[in-house]
Every structure is written in structure tokens, then in C-alpha cells.
């Protein structure tokens, strides 16, 4: 879909124009830029605190994190596509304590969908980062063949996992998915999963190949989900993302609404945003990485708008 040479020529022409435009804009507003980026909600600041990071979404420590709002749009890049969704946005907050990073994601959803049945699907949320081995930014939609993404996935059904029907069970010797070692089929101890992807339909669980070092927890209350992800700043494995105090990392979001039949590619998504890990130094240290990223963001926005217009 993205390989058509003619289209990419046109696209690269447009890209050049956009880059020029952004560079001009940024040169003019150089000293003001970091503030500008914050005010536009492009960077979420992982505020530095001391002590243990909270796993509970209700923990008061989250009051010390400044959040930003992320608009979400239905996924229209790959089939099956969605065009409408009741989920329009989420709020993200982040904290770090020089050893660990934690994210709190909250969004409005009137129904708590945690049960799974033939035609019932679970609510879920995911964070996406470039893998540490990816040079530059991968494609925001599930990464690309050159550059992989690291996805942290939380699912309501895993948070309150039911044991299914044991009533009629005669034997557990015939659980195909379990025998095949499918992580979706096996009993889960955590509601989160660490994935790597290099494009649509390629998300692969890394629990077996790598150390599962993400923890998480979610709660639904009064029409609102609150989900926490937590992980050490650095993590082994070339597919995992690595964070560093005083640096900026791209991140993107996806939300699934079970009651609307969301699963797999049926979801609402964002393009790349950025998380900055607070340090005592000046805010402007985030300037250069963001400057580089921001140009690409504009191009992506253009591409998405183009795709949306083209889709029949």
C-alpha cells in the first residue's frame, strides 16, 4: 500500500515542502518553540518524583504529573477499517523516579467491557514507542518493515479474567492454543503484554523471547477507564524501548472499545506524540529532538489526511 513509487514521489515532494515550512516556522520561533510545543500538547512531561512509582490509578502521586489530552481517530489505514467511534480522546500523565517510568491513561467509556464471548470484545489500550534498535521514527501505525515498534498492551479481559466454563470440562488436554504456546490462550498473571510489531498484522508477543518487565493495572469507575503502565527506564532487548532522564521519546496511543466491536485493527489511534523525562536542567534540552520529530509529524498528518480523503 505504501510502496507505490508514483505516490511516494508526490509524497516526498510534499514532504520537502512541509519540512521547509516547519524549519522556517521554527527558526522564527526558535526561543519560543519548546513552550509552543507544550502549549500545543505535543509533549507529555514525565515528572520526576522520588520514591516508589504508583501502580494504582487512584494513587495521589498522579496529582504531581501534568497531563495532556490526545485526540484519537478511527483506524482507516488497513482493513478492517473503522470510521466511527465513541472514543474521541484520552488523557496521558507520566512520572519517573530515575529508575522507573509510569504512565497513567484515562479515557471516557460508558461501558466496562471485560467479558469475552463470540461477539463480545474487551476494552483495551496500548502505548507505542520506537524499539531501541529503530533508528529514527518508525511508521506511527504499527511500525514498518525497517523499523519496529514496542507496544505495551493492556486488556480489560486480562484485568478481570474469568475462568470460562469449567462446568462441562472433561479434560484440559485439548487446549490447542495452550499446547501451541499461544500467549493469548495461556493463563495470564498480568493484564499487560509486551509486543513488537513491524506493520499491520505483525504484533508479536515478546514474553517468551524477552523479559516481561512491564506491569500494569486498570480500573473502570463511573464511565471512565484509568490504566497504569510501569517499567524500568531501561530494558534489555533490541525490540524494547529505552528511556533516559532528560531525553525525549516518541509515543503513540490506541484505544479499543469492546462494546463497539473493537479488536485488532478496529481501534482508535493517534500519531506520534512525545514523552520527555524531566530533569533538573533547563526545559530547552528537549528542543532539538523535538525539532527533528515535529517535521515528520506534520508530514504524517498530511499523509493521513490524504488517505482519509482517498478512502472509498
Amino acid at each position: 500500500m505504501r510502496n507505490k513509487s508514483q505516490k511516494s514521489e508526490v509524497r516526498s515532494q510534499k514532504s520537502k515542502e512541509l519540512v521547509t515550512f516547519f524549519l522556517l516556522l521554527l527558526t522564527v520561533h526558535c526561543s519560543l518553540f519548546t513552550d509552543y510545543a507544550y502549549s500545543q500538547g505535543l509533549i507529555v512531561m514525565a515528572n520526576k518524583i522520588s520514591g516508589e512509582l504508583p501502580l494504582d490509578p487512584d494513587n495521589s502521586a498522579w496529582n504531581r504529573a501534568s497531563g495532556i489530552e490526545i485526540p484519537l481517530a478511527p483506524q482507516v489505514m488497513a482493513k478492517p477499517r473503522v470510521y466511527e467511534s465513541g472514543i474521541k480522546k484520552l488523557n496521558v500523565r507520566a512520572l519517573h523516579n530515575t529508575k522507573e517510568a509510569a504512565f497513567l491513561l484515562t479515557w471516557e467509556d460508558n461501558t466496562e467491557d471485560a467479558a469475552v464471548d463470540v461477539d463480545r470484545f474487551s476494552d483495551a489500550v496500548a502505548l507505542e514507542f520506537p524499539s531501541s534498535s529503530s533508528e529514527g521514527k518508525p511508521h506511527f501505525a504499527m511500525g514498518d518493515t525497517e523499523k519496529t515498534v514496542n507496544i505495551w498492551f493492556w486488556k480489560a479481559a486480562w484485568q478481570s479474567r474469568s475462568d470460562g466454563d469449567k462446568v462441562y470440562a472433561t479434560s484440559d488436554d485439548f487446549l490447542g492454543g495452550v499446547l501451541a504456546g499461544n500467549p493469548v490462550s495461556e493463563e495470564r498473571t498480568l493484564p499487560v503484554e509486551n509486543l513488537v510489531a513491524q506493520g499491520f498484522g505483525s504484533a508479536t508477543d515478546m514474553e517468551k523471547a524477552d523479559i516481561q518487565n512491564i506491569t500494569g493495572s486498570g480500573k473502570w469507575k463511573s464511565g471512565k477507564w484509568a490504566v497504569v503502565f510501569k517499567r524500568p527506564l531501561t530494558s534489555d532487548g533490541r525490540f524494547n524501548v529505552k528511556f533516559k532522564e532528560g531525553s525525549v521519546t516518541p509515543l503513540a496511543f490506541a484505544v479499543w472499545n469492546g462494546s463497539e466491536g473493537d479488536r485488532g485493527g478496529r481501534k482508535v489511534v493517534s500519531t506520534w506524540y512525545y514523552v520527555g523525562f524531566e530533569t533538573e536542567e533547563k526545559k530547552t534540552i528537549y528542543f532539538y529532538p523535538v525539532l527533528a520529530f515535529i517535521g515528520a509529524l506534520g508530514i504524517e498528518a498530511g499523509i493521513i489526511m490524504g488517505i482519509r480523503r482517498k478512502r472509498v
Binding site: V76, K79, P80, R81, V82, Y83, D117, V118, D119
Partner: peptide
């Protein structure tokens, strides 16, 4: 339908 690979429907659990 638009955005889908095929026409189809998902049965309910009780249909089985």
C-alpha cells in the same frame, strides 16, 4: 461493506 474484506456477520454465543 466499506473498509471490510468481506460481507459477513458475527453470531451470538447463544446461536451455538
Amino acid at each position: 461493506p466499506k473498509g471490510q474484506a468481506v460481507e459477513g456477520y458475527l453470531p451470538e454465543d447463544a446461536d451455538y
